[in-house]
Amino acid sequence: MSQIRQPAVAGMFYPDDPAVLRRQVRDLLAAAESPTEPPPKAIIAPHAGYVYSGPVAASVYGRLGRARDHIRRVVLLGPSHRVPFHGLAAPSSEAFRTPLGDIPVDTEAIAGLRDFPQVQVRDDAHALEHSLEVQLPFLQEVLGEFRLIPLVVGDASYAEVREVLDHLWGGEETLIVISSDLSHYHDYDTARALDRATSVAIEALAPERIDYDHACGRTPVGGLLQAARARGLHAHTLDLRNSGDTAGPRDRVVGYGAYAID
Score class of each variant (00 low, 15 high):
Gln140Lys: 03
Ile43His: 03
Ala42Val: 06
Asp155Phe: 06
Ala125Gly: 15
Pro15Asp: 09
Arg241Glu: 14
Val161Gly: 13
Trp169Thr: 07
Gly222Tyr: 04
Asp166Tyr: 02
Tyr158Gly: 09
Glu163Pro: 00
Ala32Lys: 02
Pro79Glu: 08
Ala30Leu: 02
Arg23Leu: 06
Thr107Met: 02
Ala258Ser: 13
Asp115Arg: 05
Pro137Tyr: 07
Thr219Gln: 14
Ser2Val: 12
Asp195Glu: 12
Ser80Ile: 05
Val25Tyr: 04
Gly78His: 07
Pro207Phe: 04
Pro104Ile: 04
Arg26Leu: 14
Ala58Phe: 10
Ala48Asp: 12
Gly78Trp: 03
Glu108Tyr: 00
Leu233Met: 15
Arg26His: 13
Leu136Met: 03
Gly248Pro: 00
Tyr212Glu: 14
Val83Phe: 06
Glu133Tyr: 09
Gly54His: 01
Ala230Leu: 12
Arg26Trp: 01
Ile176Glu: 09
Asp155Ser: 14
Ala30Gly: 14
Asp27Asn: 15
Arg114Tyr: 04
Leu21Met: 13
Asp69Trp: 00
Tyr61His: 10
Gly112Asp: 11
Pro18His: 11
Leu165His: 07
Arg97Pro: 01
Ser180Ala: 14
Ala109Arg: 13
Gln140Asp: 03
Gly65Trp: 14
Arg229His: 12
Phe85Glu: 11
Asp189Met: 04
Ile44Tyr: 05
Leu225Asp: 05
Arg147Tyr: 04
Tyr259Leu: 04
Ala95Phe: 07
Glu33Thr: 14
Glu173Thr: 07
Arg250Lys: 15
Pro99Arg: 09
Ile149Thr: 10
Ile103Trp: 02
Ala206Val: 00
Asp155Leu: 11
Arg66Thr: 12
Gly154Cys: 07
Ala57Arg: 10
Phe96Asp: 00
Gly223Arg: 05
Ser199Trp: 01
Leu21Gln: 08
Tyr50Ser: 08
Ser2Asn: 14
Ala230Gly: 04
Gly222Pro: 07
Val161Met: 10
Gly222Met: 09
Gly54Arg: 08
Arg162Gln: 15
Arg66Ala: 15
His130Gln: 12
Arg218Ser: 03
Ala58Met: 12
